[in-house]
């Protein structure tokens, strides 16, 4: 197995065709083996604040320490942000109702180790051996209906409010993150994206894009495809290749 030395990546965010404001954010640090997508929610610029705080804070994490230390650092930072967004913000009278929060999906890689950390419905995909794997499982009502009431994906999608999140940074007093660790192989390609990107695309389209040799080409293909559709939501993608 080839040792994975340096990562190449490409990232882009777009407000989409309908929304005025882009509440998505990304972080791209190939030198540090860290990539993040965050999709903010909450009116009055709250969503914007939440996703920006996530990427800005993760960008400043210390670089020293081994993989496990850095992974703990990421989790600890997200737990802090959960508190910051959920309990520390000043609220103005008349604006108390809005929850300020954000999804997050982060990918940390070092040599042949990778860890994906997430909360919410932003996703991490892996393209390996000509197959597409969804590494993250959405924290959404839809996914819960599939898991707990054995609905199929189509029924779940039809459920009113199915896109509602069951977890997000800033949404509840306790944040539960999910963490998936895996071994990386030569030729692996990863995609981090917000729901605005994957909603409009089939897994075939995602796989096709990720099969392209260069992250920038994959990214262009993803956005070209997605922007041909309705693009009602903000869309963000980060493509990473060894």
């Amino acid at each position: 197995m080839a040792v994975v030395g340096h990562w190449r990546s490409a990232a882009r965010t777009h407000a989409g065709k309908v929304r005025e404001r882009n509440e998505d954010a990304f972080l791209e640090c190939p030198e540090q083996g860290l990539w993040v997508v965050a999709d903010g929610m909450g009116g009055h610029q709250g969503g914007d604040i939440a996703s920006q705080m996530i990427v800005a804070s993760l960008a400043e994490l210390p670089l020293h320490g081994n993989f496990d230390d850095r992974l703990i650092g990421i989790r600890r930072c997200l737990h802090w942000l959960n508190r910051r967004l959920g309990q520390e913000l000043t609220v103005n009278a008349g604006r108390q109702d809005s929850i300020i929060g954000s999804t997050v999906v982060a990918l940390l890689m070092e040599e042949n180790r990778a860890a994906c950390v997430w909360a919410g419905d932003s996703r991490c995909y892996l393209w390996r051996g000509q197959r597409l794997y969804q590494l993250s499982r959405d924290h959404s009502l839809q996914q819960q209906l599939i898991d707990e009431r054995q609905m199929n994906a189509r029924q779940a999608r039809a459920h009113p409010g199915g896109h509602a999140l069951t977890r997000a940074v800033g949404a509840a007093e306790q944040l539960t993150l999910e963490v998936l660790e895996l071994e990386v192989f030569a030729g692996d390609a990863f995609l981090l994206c917000s729901d605005g990107l994957y909603q409009g695309l089939s897994s075939d389209a995602l796989g096709h894009a990720l099969s392209l040799a260069l992250p920038a080409m994959a990214l262009k293909r993803l956005f070209d495809d997605a922007l041909r559709g309705a693009a009602r939501d903000n869309l963000t993608a980060v493509v990473i290749r060894g």
């Binding site: 882009n22 954010a25 990304f26 972080l27 791209e28 640090c29 914007d48 990427v55 800005a56």
Partner: peptide, 12 residues
């Protein structure tokens, strides 16, 4: 010293 990271620009 860290390599520059690329962050999406805050749109607000």
């Amino acid at each position: 010293n860290r390599e520059p990271a690329r962050l999406s620009a805050p749109s607000a």
